[in-house]
Design a protein around this nucleic acid. Structure first.
Lengths: 295, 295
DNA sequence: CGGGACTTTGAGCAAATTCAACCATTGTGG
DNA sequence: CCACAATGGTTGAATTTGCTCAAAGTCCCG
């Protein structure tokens, strides 16, 4: 599949790739019928083409460093992300490389197998990392939100795809130059090492969930995790905004959309949660969820 | 469960914890009946007590550095592990900290929730990292073999357990001192960052497997992965030695022992593999396995 | 040779998937 | 402004995969 993606130039703005939920059986991919017979071709349209930078001209080069630096001063996720770990001088160094991007839901950031030319920091929205099998089954390996760093583990090519799930803002850095800064700034290197360690711990948590938890346990775990994330970022938790579709939750939890939906209904019936809308959840009984989570 | 483990002093040399296979249903843990009613209490016996070092006295301190350095010179996994990335001087630095340990199958190295006092390099054998749920269901998050580094992602306490699956030799370093060396030796830091990145990529591969692959696909993927590992280490691949029990394979693949066994039988029936013994597999048709692996 | 641990095989069952229909929300065009 | 199509979510029924429970079969070690 990676090879198929290489020709990616432009695709219709509305493609189904992002929402074609994975299915468990090998024959499942076709069964979703009308949806995107060319799954995998994806919305690989070059980001630059779609990019709507805060200062659009900045994409042409990095002459806009002062302007960018100013934007960084005002950045709302500064404390959460890598910039917070840096001295002012080093921040300027990074600010000289940065490009700002805006993405719509379902827009691809990069695809499994692509050359890893950039690394990213997310300033707003929600991004999914995912891997797929040849027949289209998709597994989301993680969600990232404001403050998260994207591109940690990359070598020369990406081992996973990344896609915006909600309207998203990114800071993008050319990978080679970022790497150079990283090697000259020990604080940055250490910060990234710590981030990698965190991400690894999360991945192991996810492995436990996928390998050993029941559908309901997965869902309860997921909701509690989303709440913790929101708390860490100072986002509202009492209606908790999921920022993703059921299909994405399903692809994250290794389930089908239907099972996820049934799970939500069951949790609602138990009084554990309330739904303002499909995306806005109230965790009425966190203790019950905790118990249901199996952990 | 972490709190239960804290009192760990000595346990019988033969405990069942390591082999009590996880089960999917919440009630499953008890259903295995006679096996280890005190699951979770584990073989937490201090390693030092069981340790049979190559030069036993070394445990008392680190005065044996020259001796250890000599051992390191002869080390068979030097090229694979962190030592290979170091200057001779830095190697001596590490050699001054090292302690050699030998473990029997089922012996615990550390437990989820323990203080992370050491990091390890594996020189021989096979180690499983695992996480468990409250009711005893266990998930193995990864296997490590000769050359692998254990303790990458740790903060002050371990997020997972580690246990020897076959007779195993380890190099152990006090974590704080290792950390100090790490921070003074950029090459080491970068090597560990690279290892963390590799481990993360493996974890994501595992997430895809657990979330979206069928039992047979998991097994095929597993066998190919084990073969790749053996190749990387220059170990024999034609009878490929698994170095672990079916129960461990099951806990790694998110399945039950029975399903794993059926899978092996099915692969055998298809002619994809041959079994010299339960632990010695011949991959008769790697291409078929590749196809079956779903990737 | 005998005992125990591990592995394999079989039969029935249950959780989650598949397939299918229906409902709700949203945006569009008449 | 409302009908209506489209998308996403929910619910139901049948099916399937993998699990549970049970019983043999193997292998290893003393």
């Amino acid at each position: 599949m990676p090879s198929l993606a290489s020709a990616g130039t432009n695709a219709p703005a509305t493609e189904a790739t992002g929402t074609a939920s994975a299915t468990r059986s090998k024959s499942g991919a076709q069964s979703h019928g009308a949806r995107s017979p060319r799954a995998g071709a994806a919305a690989h349209a070059g980001i630059a083409a779609h990019a709507q930078t805060d200062a659009d001209a900045s994409l042409a080069g990095h002459h806009a460093s002062t302007c960018q630096a100013f934007a960084c001063q005002a950045c709302t996720v500064r404390g959460l992300t890598i910039c917070g770990a840096l001295e002012p001088d080093d921040q300027t160094l990074l600010a000289g490389l940065v490009q700002h991007l805006s993405l719509q839901p379902h827009q691809s950031i990069f695809q499994e197998g692509d050359a890893a030319d950039y690394v990213y920091t997310i300033t707003a929205g929600c991004v999914a990392m995912s891997k797929s099998l040849a027949d289209g089954r998709r597994q989301i390996t993680g969600f990232m939100g404001p403050g998260d760093f994207l591109g940690l583990a990359v070598e020369d090519e990406n081992h996973y795809s990344a896609e915006a799930l909600s309207p998203t803002h990114l800071c993008r850095y050319p990978r080679q130059r970022f790497r150079a800064v990283m090697q000259s700034v020990p604080a940055l290197e250490q910060r990234l090492y710590a981030l990698a360690a965190d991400e690894l711990a999360l991945a192991q948590e996810q492995i436990l969930l996928l390998g050993r938890k029941t559908a309901l346990e997965r869902l309860a775990t997921f909701l509690l995790m989303m709440r913790r994330r929101a708390q860490q970022r100072g986002l509202p938790t009492n209606p908790l905004r999921l920022s993703m579709a059921r299909a994405d939750v399903a692809d994250y939890l290794g389930l089908t959309v239907e099972t996820v939906s049934r799970g939500f209904s069951k949790l609602r019936a138990m009084g554990a949660i309330t739904l303002d809308s499909a995306e806005l959840v109230r965790l009425a009984k966190p203790a019950l969820l905790q118990e249901l989570s199996g952990t």
